[in-house]
Simulated assay, not measured.
Amino acid sequence: MRLLRSRPTPPAPASPGDLLAEAEALHVRLGARDVLHGVDVAVRAGEVLALVGPNGAGKSTLLGALAADIAPAGAVLPQSSALSFPFSVEEVVRMGRAPWAALDPADDEAAVAGAMAATEVTAFAARPFSALSGGERARVALARVLAQRAPLLMLDEPTAALDLRHQELVLRLCRERARAGDAVVVVLHDLGLAAAHAHRVAVLRAGRVAADGPPEEIFTESLLSEVYDQPVEVLTHPRTGAVLVLPVRTE
């Protein structure tokens, strides 16, 4: 008798406010170092959650810990992508459909084409991934994650290698995914981007959450100056009312 394994199916759509990932009193030790200490964080459908904080605060570790608990319903984009074989851009993006491959070929094609168009990589679909610039690779890697169409999207510093236009593009895509009912967790160093695009921000410091809430509430001069060990000023944009975070410069 031969046992037939059921094919995987895409996760069901989430409802607004659904809890898609959560950490309670999370501790992570890597080697001899405690990286996270009693971290609590919740990720809900319909929101963009930004993880911010100085280098070594534990942002990427927290992202990885959350992803391990929710696979395969989560899609994770690491800080950098490297491939040893000469795959084309389109082939790399198509890898994002691997969990659901052959379930609906037409849906696969639509997902791949849509992801490439959204990240503006269609024009060089046939080029080898290895021949791309760092910023182009980052956008292709994001397209691969978008093609998976998971209800939870996790991005680790997706704007680090991008120019101004494509930084805004990536964060707009995050907002669009949240409006469509998905949850997005994104690690960011740019506090301005976090303030402009995140519904909620978790500020990490030395492996702990120093504050968690809407950026307009928790981005205060006292908190950010302490967390980053750098004096900052928090201003309100005169036209949009958005929060602006600037380092205090004496010269």
Rank of each mutant, 00 (worst) to 15 (best):
H199A: 14
R7L: 14
V76R: 00
R249G: 08
L19C: 13
G58D: 09
D163Y: 00
L164C: 01
A98M: 08
G53S: 11
L103E: 04
A21D: 12
A141S: 11
A23N: 15
R165N: 10
F124C: 04
S225N: 13
V43T: 11
V93M: 07
E226V: 09
G17W: 04
D212S: 15
L49F: 14
G17F: 15
W100I: 04
T159Q: 00
P214F: 13
A82C: 14
P13R: 04
A178R: 08
A198L: 02
G74K: 07
G58W: 03
A75S: 12
T61H: 08
D163C: 00
R7G: 02
A117I: 04
A71M: 09
P11Q: 06
L246M: 13
A68E: 11
D40F: 03
A115D: 06
A141K: 01
V243T: 14
R165M: 11
F219M: 14
F87T: 01
P231H: 11
S130A: 15
S84M: 14
F85P: 03
L164M: 13
Q148L: 09
E22C: 15
G58E: 06
G64Y: 05
T61P: 09
R249F: 15
V89S: 03
R94L: 06
P11G: 08
A150G: 10
R205A: 15
A21Y: 12
T240Y: 10
M154N: 01
V245L: 04
E168R: 07
Q167P: 07
L132G: 02
A67R: 11
T220M: 05
R44K: 15
L171G: 01
D18C: 12
L103F: 06
P11W: 13
V243N: 01
L30S: 10
D34S: 14
L162S: 02
V121T: 15
A111T: 03
L26F: 13
P158M: 05
V145G: 02
G53D: 02
A202D: 13
V203A: 09
G17P: 11
L3N: 10
A180G: 05
A113V: 05
V243R: 05
V52F: 04
H237T: 11
A102M: 11
A160T: 10
P16I: 12
L204P: 05
A141N: 05
P16L: 12
P72R: 10
R7W: 12
A160M: 05
A115H: 03
L77N: 01
V121H: 02
P238C: 12
G56T: 11
R144D: 06
V187L: 03
P247F: 13
A123G: 08
V209L: 13
T9V: 15
